[in-house]
Amino acid sequence: MTHARLSLHFLLLLLFCCSSWTQAAVLVSIKPIHSLVAGIMQGVEDPQLLLSGGQSPHRYTLKPSDARNIQQADLIIWIGPEMESFLPRILTASERPNIVLLDLLKIENKTSHNHDHEDHAGRDPHLWLDPLLAKRVVQLIADRLSLLDPKHHGSYEENARTLQQRLDRLHHELESRLAPVRPTPYIAFHDAYGYLEARYRLNSVGTVILDPERLSGARHIRDLQQKIRHTGVGCIFTEPQFEPRLVESLIEDTATRHAELDPLGSDLPAGPDAYFQLMRRVANQLVQCLANK
C-alpha cells in the first residue's frame, strides 16, 4: 500500500469513422465500468459490453464475435493492459487504420494503491472498487462524451451528477456497513481489493495468488498457512473466475471460513444498476464471512 501520487491509465480508444456520433457504437470491456458508462449515457444510447460472462479479463481469450465487435466499435473504453491484457494484441492488428489511443485518466489519489505484495509489483487496475474514485471516473467519461457529442452534453452532465450523488450515498452506506469488521484479518484470492481496503480501512493480510496469470509457488503457500494459523485469519475469499480448490486445502483443519467475492459482478445483469449491486454484494459478503453471520 502506498500513499504516493498515482497515475492511473484508464484508456479510451477513439475509433473515428465516417458515421455520425449518434450512430456510433460504444464498447466497454468489463461490467463495472460498463455500468458507469451506461449510467452516463442513459437516455442517449446503450453501450455494449465486451466481457459479459464470468471470464477473467486477466486470462480472457477473444472469440471471433468479440473481434468483430471491437472492429465495429467507434469508442472502446477499457482500463489498460494491466487488466485486459488480451486487448492490445488485437488493437495492434486492427484493420481500422485511424485508431487514436488517448491516455485520459491521471488521477492523484491520496489513498492510491499499488500491487506491492511480496514480489508482485505494478499499478492496481481495480479502480472501480472505491466509489469516490469512481465519481472521478464518471466525470472524466462524461467530459469526454460531451466533447465528442456536444449535442447531448446536457444529458451527459445531468446523468453524471445523478450518478455521482448515488456514489456518494453508496460510499456512506459501505462505510457504515464495513466498520464493524475492520479489525478482522482476512486473505483475498488475488490483489484486487486495494482501493476498497484503503478507503474503508480493512485488514487484508495477504492474497492466495500473487499474479492472476500465474500459480502461486510453494514458499508462498507455506507463508499463507503460517498466517492462517498464527494471525487469526477470519476468512479466505475465493473468486468465481478462479478454481477454489487451493483455498479449500489452505483452510483444511482450521477454524478459518471461506466465502466468495466477485469484483466483476459476473452474474449480475448489465446496466446502470450493476455497479451498485456489485459493491453492496461485495460488502455484504465481507461482513457475513468476517463477522461469521
Results as ranks from 00 to 15, higher is better:
residue 3 H to I: 08
residue 4 A to M: 09
residue 7 S to N: 12
residue 8 L to W: 10
residue 10 F to T: 06
residue 11 L to F: 01
residue 12 L to S: 08
residue 13 L to N: 03
residue 15 L to M: 11
residue 15 L to W: 00
residue 21 W to I: 15
residue 22 T to D: 14
residue 23 Q to L: 12
residue 24 A to H: 11
residue 25 A to F: 00
residue 27 L to M: 05
residue 36 L to E: 02
residue 40 I to F: 07
residue 55 Q to G: 09
residue 56 S to C: 08
residue 57 P to G: 13
residue 58 H to R: 08
residue 58 H to M: 08
residue 66 D to A: 09
residue 68 R to V: 13
residue 68 R to A: 13
residue 70 I to N: 03
residue 71 Q to S: 11
residue 73 A to D: 05
residue 74 D to H: 12
residue 76 I to N: 02
residue 79 I to W: 01
residue 79 I to Y: 11
residue 81 P to D: 15
residue 81 P to M: 07
residue 85 S to N: 12
residue 87 L to H: 02
residue 88 P to H: 08
residue 95 E to D: 09
residue 95 E to C: 02
residue 96 R to L: 08
residue 102 L to D: 09
residue 107 I to P: 00
residue 111 T to K: 14
residue 112 S to P: 00
residue 114 N to I: 10
residue 118 E to G: 01
residue 118 E to A: 12
residue 124 D to T: 08
residue 125 P to V: 08
residue 129 L to C: 05
residue 130 D to P: 03
residue 130 D to T: 06
residue 130 D to C: 07
residue 132 L to F: 00
residue 134 A to T: 07
residue 137 V to L: 13
residue 138 V to P: 04
residue 139 Q to L: 15
residue 140 L to W: 06
residue 148 L to M: 14
residue 148 L to A: 10
residue 149 D to F: 13
residue 159 N to V: 05
residue 163 L to S: 05
residue 166 R to Q: 14
residue 166 R to F: 00
residue 169 R to F: 12
residue 170 L to W: 08
residue 175 E to Q: 15
residue 177 R to M: 14
residue 178 L to G: 06
residue 178 L to Y: 01
residue 179 A to W: 12
residue 184 T to V: 15
residue 184 T to C: 06
residue 185 P to Q: 11
residue 186 Y to F: 15
residue 186 Y to M: 06
residue 188 A to T: 15
residue 189 F to M: 03
residue 193 Y to G: 01
residue 194 G to I: 04
residue 196 L to I: 07
residue 196 L to R: 02
residue 202 L to W: 09
residue 207 T to F: 03
residue 213 E to I: 10
residue 216 S to D: 09
residue 218 A to N: 10
residue 220 H to C: 11
residue 222 R to D: 12
residue 224 L to Y: 03
residue 224 L to Q: 04
residue 230 H to P: 00
residue 230 H to V: 02
residue 232 G to H: 04
residue 233 V to M: 02
residue 236 I to N: 01
residue 239 E to A: 02
residue 242 F to Q: 01
residue 249 S to Y: 04
residue 254 T to P: 03
residue 256 T to R: 03
residue 261 L to G: 03
residue 263 P to R: 04
residue 264 L to S: 04
residue 265 G to H: 06
residue 270 A to Y: 07
residue 271 G to A: 11
residue 274 A to C: 11
residue 274 A to E: 11
residue 274 A to S: 12
residue 274 A to P: 08
residue 278 L to E: 04
residue 280 R to N: 15
residue 284 N to E: 14
residue 286 L to A: 06
residue 292 N to I: 03
